[in-house]
Design a protein around this nucleic acid. Structure first.
Length: 193
DNA sequence: CAATAGATCATCT
DNA sequence: GATGATCTATTGC
């Protein structure tokens, strides 16, 4: 298995990281999945006033991680029910992160299925932000975890591959619902709906 | 298949 | 006290 992506990979604008993450592999213990869908959330430095981003109002106890150094996990609870995994991008002091929205299961599929309550069909195992954290066993305990080492990492593909990147507005947000900040592998059937 | 309701709580006002 | 980067079950066609 390839080494984890280095910190430098994450030390650039969130949009670049969101695109570059497509095709890489999220690994947690014995389970892993290929990232096929991401969304970028921008900080004030983008000049875009991204009100959909948690970092929009500046540093708070929750958003501390997003303003920290790149290459760490930001995990939060949504609707009091599910948890979402983000990757922190951009240098320390600059807000910017990438929501992982969907995975193509690679290893440990039976384990993922049991964690998902036995849902049938590999396609439905991790094709959404709340589903993939469940399937991979990722929780708020991973908030602030270093993705360049340890049990939870992101690694390059085994072999270089040719993919087409699709772009669309982000899903499920109220503000800035027109910005084209969602990226996905064109034609991949594990992308969320 | 499409539309809708409800679950449930950390965070910030 | 309101809100939300979601998902599932259930309803109705």
């Amino acid at each position: 298995m390839p080494e984890p992506l280095p910190r430098a990979f994450y030390n650039r604008p969130a949009i670049e990281v969101a695109r570059a993450l497509l095709g890489t592999v999220l690994v947690h213990g014995t389970t892993s999945g290929r990232i096929v869908e991401t969304e970028a959330y921008l900080g004030p430095q983008s000049g875009l006033e991204d009100r959909a981003a948690h970092s929009w109002r500046g540093v708070t106890p929750r958003t501390r991680v997003i303003f920290g150094p790149p290459g760490y996990a930001y995990v939060y609870l949504i609707y009091g029910v599910y948890e979402c995994l983000n990757v922190v991008a951009e240098p320390k002091g600059s807000a910017g992160c990438v929501l992982i929205r969907a995975l193509e299961p690679v290893a440990g599929i039976p384990r993922m299925r049991s964690r998902r309550g036995g849902v049938p069909g590999v396609e439905r195992l991790a094709n959404g932000p709340g589903k993939l954290t469940l399937a991979m066993g990722i929780t708020r305990r991973h908030n602030g975890a270093d993705l360049t080492r340890g049990r939870l990492t992101i690694r390059p593909p085994e072999r270089p591959e040719d993919i087409r990147i699709g772009v669309s507005p982000r899903i499920g947000i109220k503000h800035c619902a027109d910005l084209p900040l969602r990226f996905f592998i064109e034609g991949n059937r594990f992308v969320s709906r």
